[in-house]
Measured scan of single mutants.
Amino acid sequence: MLDDRARMEAAKKEKVEQILAEFQLQEEDLKKVMRRMQKEMDRGLRLETHEEASVKMLPTYVRSTPEGSEVGDFLSLDLGGTNFRVMLVKVGEGEEGQWSVKTKHQMYSIPEDAMTGTAEMLFDYISECISDFLDKHQMKHKKLPLGFTFSFPVRHEDIDKGILLNWTKGFKASGAEGNNVVGLLRDAIKRRGDFEMDVVAMVNDTVATMISCYYEDHQCEVGMIVGTGCNACYMEEMQNVELVEGDEGRMCVNTEWGAFGDSGELDEFLLEYDRLVDESSANPGQQLYEKLIGGKYMGELVRLVLLRLVDENLLFHGEASEQLRTRGAFETRFVSQVESDTGDRKQIYNILSTLGLRPSTTDCDIVRRACESVSTRAAHMCSAGLAGVINRMRESRSEDVMRITVGVDGSVYKLHPSFKERFHASVRRLTPSCEITFIESEEGSGRGAALVSAVACKKACMLGQ
């Protein structure tokens, strides 16, 4: 009897593995994704193909990295998701002549009506938060230079001027797309009239992360975010950046690689679950690469896999709870928690219980395998993109072996128990001629924006502006 049951459990697990095998990517698959990513990057950089390229390769006008001589107080704003952060950054000489960066910050959550109302409502709310922060720190009387981390696709015309191309991540505030974001912020500050600010720089969160990590390690020339969304930036040779005049030196390019796949480059790798996630998203047909990796989508992918296993009578005796059938019910943090389970399955059992399920031991094991399959594919897909960037940098610099540091931020990278190990191992397999160091950014977005502002202020002083 026991043997029969054991055989049935083994057969069930084997069927589960057959279904989950769809998520496995072979090294040849990853090399294919990497080569296609490089081709799209090239198209994004070139003037004649930029418009139709899915990977936009947006110039950021960040050319210099901090040298350690900029000092002063800077205000930093960070808008990239449902939370908005205001930070005071003091850049100065530390002990023994070292450079020191001290920060104080406060988080504000953005109400739904500000995210989806008008641009005026959104930026009025942001300036209200700045006003509140300055009151708390008794700094209303000071006109501070301000660095703005704005983590949406922007076409820069200068370091302090950028046109919002399109909202992502659930934002829909009308009247912002096609307009200068810094102008919208300046107008809102003017409307309030109770404080003055000098907006000197606007950067993407990947750029802010790279600059913040450069402060720790001067070989950091790539910034990457794996959180709600997924994106990367890197220092490109100016001669390859056709959208900006000049051939000397390097400029940081914001790849906006989340949109890779929007022209069909990933079609052969998309599964039924991916198509369902895409169809029910706020932007169907867009940001397809990001939807395979980002935390906004990972939990939902797992939920759809679990429903398939229920329908195949391989999980929960073929019956799903009402909660499990509800879109968004299986949160991405559950994926991390399930994979963090120590082996007694308590954590998995508790999560499934909150979803109205009474799982068996085998159910718990199957749910864990589903989570591992989805998150491992995410790590491997992400590795193909980064390997594409790094191999490109090595080739354009004609280096036999390139040493490089990548600064990384984002909740999936930082909080998932195995993502970074799987990701690092896969990147290294795909970049055999590179020695890569990964560092995690601390308060990256805010500190990085302030350091970019410090560079901009120093330049302005040198130019006598």
Rank of each mutant, 00 (worst) to 15 (best):
residue 327 R to E: 04
residue 348 I to H: 05
residue 451 L to C: 12
residue 8 M to V: 15
residue 238 M to I: 12
residue 345 R to I: 08
residue 185 L to W: 01
residue 418 S to N: 14
residue 324 L to P: 00
residue 453 S to W: 14
residue 413 Y to F: 10
residue 166 N to H: 12
residue 87 M to S: 05
residue 163 I to R: 11
residue 231 N to K: 08
residue 15 K to R: 15
residue 22 E to D: 14
residue 187 D to V: 01
residue 248 E to M: 03
residue 127 S to L: 06
residue 26 Q to I: 13
residue 233 C to L: 00
residue 384 A to K: 00
residue 460 A to E: 10
residue 223 G to Q: 00
residue 336 S to K: 14
residue 118 T to W: 11
residue 410 G to D: 08
residue 454 A to Y: 13
residue 379 A to S: 08
residue 389 V to E: 01
residue 413 Y to W: 10
residue 253 V to R: 00
residue 187 D to G: 02
residue 446 G to F: 14
residue 301 L to N: 12
residue 105 H to G: 06
residue 372 E to G: 02
residue 401 V to A: 09
residue 195 F to I: 06
residue 321 S to N: 12
residue 126 I to A: 13
residue 316 F to Y: 13
residue 286 Q to W: 12
residue 42 D to H: 10
residue 256 E to L: 14
residue 67 E to Y: 08
residue 344 D to N: 09
residue 104 K to V: 08
residue 453 S to D: 15
residue 234 Y to K: 00
residue 409 D to L: 09
residue 92 G to M: 06
residue 376 T to L: 10
residue 383 S to W: 00
residue 288 L to C: 15
residue 261 G to S: 03
residue 215 Y to A: 00
residue 132 D to T: 13
residue 158 D to C: 11
residue 419 F to M: 08
residue 335 V to D: 00
residue 65 T to H: 06
residue 209 T to F: 04
residue 227 G to R: 01
residue 194 D to F: 14
residue 344 D to K: 01
residue 385 G to S: 14
residue 186 R to F: 07
residue 310 V to M: 07
residue 380 H to F: 06
residue 176 A to T: 15
residue 206 T to G: 04
residue 330 F to T: 09
residue 32 K to Q: 04
residue 460 A to C: 07
residue 148 F to S: 09
residue 209 T to C: 03
residue 231 N to R: 08
residue 408 V to A: 11
residue 110 I to M: 11
residue 458 K to Y: 13
residue 446 G to A: 13
residue 311 D to V: 05
residue 303 R to I: 01
residue 308 R to M: 03
residue 337 Q to R: 11
residue 341 D to G: 02
residue 74 F to Q: 01
residue 145 P to D: 00
residue 333 R to C: 13
residue 8 M to N: 08
residue 294 G to K: 02
residue 151 S to Y: 05
residue 318 G to T: 04
residue 457 C to A: 14
residue 67 E to W: 04
residue 306 L to V: 03
residue 449 A to V: 10
residue 276 L to C: 09
residue 392 R to I: 08
residue 53 A to E: 04
residue 98 Q to T: 09
residue 396 S to T: 14
residue 253 V to M: 03
residue 104 K to D: 08
residue 5 R to I: 13
residue 297 Y to L: 15
residue 422 R to S: 15
residue 431 T to H: 11
residue 420 K to Y: 14
residue 353 S to E: 05
residue 375 S to E: 09
residue 72 G to T: 00
residue 429 R to H: 15
residue 391 N to W: 14
residue 179 N to I: 06
residue 260 F to K: 00
residue 267 D to N: 14
residue 6 A to P: 13
residue 429 R to P: 14
residue 304 L to G: 07
residue 24 Q to C: 14
residue 215 Y to N: 13
residue 384 A to Q: 04
residue 53 A to F: 01
residue 32 K to R: 05
residue 65 T to M: 08
residue 156 H to L: 07
residue 281 S to R: 07
residue 426 S to M: 13
residue 177 E to M: 07
residue 73 D to K: 00
residue 403 R to D: 04
residue 378 A to R: 11
residue 436 I to K: 01
residue 122 L to H: 02
residue 87 M to H: 09
residue 103 T to Q: 10
residue 370 A to Q: 00
residue 429 R to L: 15
residue 278 D to Y: 14
residue 5 R to D: 08
residue 279 E to W: 03
residue 220 C to A: 08
residue 168 T to I: 08
residue 205 D to P: 07
residue 383 S to C: 06
residue 271 L to M: 05
residue 202 M to L: 04
residue 134 L to R: 04
residue 100 S to M: 15
residue 40 E to A: 05
residue 10 A to L: 15
residue 441 S to Y: 03
residue 37 M to E: 01
residue 184 L to G: 09
residue 196 E to S: 10
residue 180 N to D: 06
residue 87 M to L: 07
residue 84 F to K: 01
residue 212 S to V: 07
residue 339 E to L: 01
residue 285 G to W: 06
residue 260 F to C: 01
residue 107 M to R: 07
residue 94 G to V: 07
residue 382 C to I: 12
residue 115 M to E: 10
residue 55 V to M: 12
residue 382 C to F: 05
residue 408 V to G: 08
residue 402 M to Q: 09
residue 53 A to G: 07
residue 14 E to G: 13
residue 13 K to T: 11
residue 274 D to L: 02
residue 285 G to E: 11
residue 389 V to P: 03
residue 216 E to L: 03
residue 323 Q to W: 12
residue 2 L to D: 14
residue 87 M to Q: 01
residue 352 L to D: 00
residue 369 R to N: 07
residue 369 R to Q: 08
residue 434 C to Y: 10
residue 402 M to F: 10
residue 238 M to S: 05
residue 429 R to E: 11
residue 79 L to R: 10
residue 327 R to G: 11
residue 107 M to W: 04
residue 363 D to Q: 00
residue 131 S to W: 05
residue 299 G to K: 12
residue 41 M to A: 01
residue 211 I to H: 00
residue 464 G to V: 11
residue 402 M to T: 11
residue 27 E to F: 13
residue 387 A to N: 02
residue 190 K to E: 05
residue 207 V to T: 09
residue 77 L to C: 08
residue 147 G to W: 02
residue 451 L to V: 11
residue 430 L to C: 03
residue 144 L to N: 05
residue 258 G to W: 07
residue 327 R to V: 12
residue 66 P to I: 10
residue 137 H to S: 08
residue 157 E to K: 14
residue 435 E to W: 13
residue 164 L to E: 12
residue 216 E to T: 07
residue 433 S to R: 14
residue 428 R to Q: 11
residue 203 V to F: 04
residue 56 K to H: 07
residue 366 I to M: 03
residue 208 A to T: 14
residue 391 N to L: 14
residue 153 P to L: 13
residue 448 G to D: 08
residue 172 K to W: 06
residue 339 E to V: 01
residue 96 E to F: 13
residue 260 F to R: 01
residue 47 L to R: 14
residue 321 S to K: 13
residue 108 Y to R: 08
residue 93 E to R: 07
residue 421 E to N: 13
residue 115 M to Y: 12
residue 195 F to L: 04
residue 218 H to P: 06
residue 83 N to G: 10
residue 274 D to M: 00
residue 293 I to N: 07
residue 26 Q to A: 06
residue 240 N to Q: 05
residue 426 S to I: 03
residue 94 G to R: 09
residue 447 R to G: 12
residue 7 R to P: 12
residue 74 F to N: 01
residue 90 K to A: 01
residue 152 F to N: 11
residue 154 V to P: 11
residue 95 E to Q: 12
residue 275 R to F: 15
